[in-house]
Design a protein around this nucleic acid. Structure first.
Lengths: 170, 170
DNA sequence: TTGACATAATTAGCCACCTAACTATAATGA
DNA sequence: TCATTATAGTTAGGTGGCTAATTATGTCAA
């Protein structure tokens, strides 16, 4: 994954703002830092998961299944929740089924559909990974006060809401 | 790109915390929302750039070149700043050179090395894209007060600093 | 001087995602 | 009833990132 390692200096930002009057310097700086920290986190997550022989896409699928009380879902729903195409989900599930972490179960009521079930081995894999992941995440976030965590979520909510403006013209 | 569309409910988070005592619910919620908003932004950026026949990787390279006062850099430095391998940078530059947006110039002083120069066509492409991008970004962030922008950067700084703890054990 | 090592860029081949097209099944309505 | 349309999942082929190996060049110490 592409990982912005070099954020612009204040001077460079101002030079860009001079060339492009549409530029909002504090908006750009916030945006770039947000992207950078998020990709750093994602890369660190990849590294953590790879020690448990997992890739991020497959791991998210396992988590989505564990969220279900019956440990079961369908490829379409999983694809939607993960924001990937159904074709991609087929590949993710192929890998997980080959590793014995999930199981495809046919559905008599609708023979087009397939149930995906988290196996005991899949649960065991999560029980192996999650404590490691949660411990790292706790350490990583421990510098934030309760108020800062609330503020962060509120700010992200505003940005998320503002994104509807992004696609306003096409 | 994988895009988390389904954040866990408070109830699911608490169920996970019960299964995994290492879990810090507010840290997890903040982390997931951060990842989601960042990937949403990245996907929106992709959509914006594709209307100008650009891909994100190539676009960042053009921007890195525009940051330089002589519009020039080298593949190694660009790869480092973009957080990709030099092999990947070779591919990005191939695409940009084929489109006439950058130019490879040999360096007599060190015949291993190559200078990469932003061409007038490359500048014209940026002059086409950047106003569109900056306008969208401004709209997207306009809901944030000046204080919130400062807070966001401070909070991201704390997380970034906390990430050194992530890799503490291996 | 020259052998060992470091560095710059590229090439070759892998993997995870994508789009588009396909098969099979279900639902709908004239 | 049965043609049309919608839906679930998969397959086929493309793309951008990766690692590892390769080529070429520079550096440095014995």
């Amino acid at each position: 994954m592409l990982q912005l390692r070099d954020l612009p200096t204040q001077e460079v930002l101002e030079r860009f703002a001079q060339r492009y009057p549409e530029a909002d310097v504090t908006a750009i700086a916030s945006f770039l830092m947000l992207l950078r920290v998020a990709t750093d986190l994602s890369v660190a997550l990849d590294a953590c998961l790879s020690k448990h022989d997992l890739l991020q896409g497959r791991w998210w699928v396992l988590i989505l299944l564990l969220r279900e009380t019956d440990l079961t879902s369908t490829p379409s729903v999983l694809a939607e929740k993960l924001g990937v195409t159904r074709a991609t989900m087929t590949g993710l599930l192929d890998g997980l089924e080959q590793g014995g972490l999930v199981q495809r179960v046919s559905v008599p009521q609708d023979r087009r559909s397939v149930k995906i079930k988290l196996t005991p081995a899949g649960q065991a894999k999560l029980d192996d990974v999650m404590p490691d992941y949660y411990t790292r995440l706790r350490l990583c976030m421990q510098g934030l006060t309760a108020k800062q965590r609330q503020d962060l979520q509120a700010i992200l909510g505003v940005i998320d809401h503002g994104m509807s403006a992004w696609d306003f013209n096409q």
